[in-house]
Write a protein that binds this DNA or RNA. Structure first.
Lengths: 217, 217
DNA sequence: GTCTATATCGCGATAGAC
DNA sequence: GTCTATCGCGATATAGAC
């Protein structure tokens, strides 16, 4: 009986790993081709199995796409929520810097994830809007409230907290989404690590300068 | 003979108008569905003609798509190059504010144009990379050089000019591209004009605070 | 220029043997 | 679980009458 359970469990683990591998390939293809432009056959080929076999694990293309977006959100939320748990003792400047660093890091380490999410939003979030409403928006709202508490306590300057967050999101996101254009401007094939630390410095400088509280008298 | 020429000219004008109208419809469909997701039949239907008739004016879908992107670039360049002609007498703060305002205005007035361009870049600019290299990159490079001249002259603080431009681009662009997510955060159906003036204030505050030159002694 | 009709293809998805 | 075979659909694109 132990053997039987262990065998079933192992099979489940294998299945889980394979599904994860397929999703990892799919995120890149969706990012490069868009949802409609990505064909199940292409994803299957790059994942090293047949189209029909892929569809044994993911019954429809849309299910695979939603799994990809779920993985994107899981990763992003895991990175971002630990930050949002900033205690009232933490200095706003340190929290903001860490926030920028984490989001930029996500753009560097998971550029395809960032792009698939971006394309879904740009096209109107028709397939994934409900998940965004339920999982992303509450996190962003809480971040905005944190900013507003800081403002109310006089710890940062009275900026528009919502648009400040939009700005941070936009600047960090763009290092994944607009990387092709940035590479053209910089005359390189890809964005190097050096560019990301320059990006972090520049973004942090802008955010921190904007929220600098009036000097105490 | 005058009649003949005038008739031919009129026909050409009509054809030009119709092609422009089709492109104006197509930009919205491409923005909402992506290149592959947008069907010629859908565009034709919304433009009020048959699919076959549309393909009389645009022989292939890709030609129509490139025309759409050409129009996007024409509009954007026309708005942006007049600004870049900033004389050496103009105050950097005024030029930056005008730049932010113009780009934000483009996001508000031509959201579909902004989105189609963004999706093309995110997916790797496979179809339009050459045009971006030839028409967009030089403009961005010149903007960066303007920033660097200001820095060399001590008129703004010594920031990374390239990343400053990337940041301005990202923040302004996002008000078209991420409008669906912003609307969800704000709990509204669309972004109102009020949000754009708040956006402009916040972005300008960040940029100007970051480039504020050290006070003269 | 606009119509009807159709060619040709690739797509997502399914059926059933093993 | 993986294979071969195939269905049905919608897509781009074309041909030819008027």
């Amino acid at each position: 009986m132990d053997d039987k359970l262990a065998g079933a469990s192992r099979r489940m683990q294998n299945r889980g790993r394979l599904e994860g591998d397929i999703a990892a390939v799919a995120v890149r293809v969706f990012a490069e081709c868009g949802y409609e432009g990505a064909s199940v056959a292409t994803i299957a080929e790059q994942a090293g199995l047949s189209k029909q076999n892929l569809m044994y694990y993911y019954p429809t293309k849309q299910v695979l796409y939603e799994r990809v977006l779920d993985d994107v959100l899981d990763d992003w939320l895991a990175r971002m929520t630990q930050l949002a748990a900033a205690g009232p003792d933490d200095a706003p400047a340190d929290v903001l810097r860490a926030y920028i660093q984490a989001k930029l890091r996500f753009s560097r380490e998971q550029p395809y994830a960032s792009r698939v999410y971006a394309m879904e939003v740009i096209a109107g979030a028709r397939l994934y809007g409900e998940q965004i409403r339920e999982r992303v928006v509450p996190v962003l709202r809480r971040d905005i409230e944190t900013f507003e508490r800081w403002i109310a306590a006089g710890r940062i300057a009275p900026v528009n907290a919502t648009h400040l967050l939009f700005a941070i999101w936009a600047m960090t996101q763009s290092y994944a989404d607009f990387a092709p254009q940035m590479a053209l401007v910089l005359g390189r094939d890809d964005l190097s690590g050096h560019d990301f630390s320059d990006a972090e410095d520049t973004i942090a400088r802008m955010v921190l300068a904007a929220v600098q509280p009036p000097a105490e008298k």
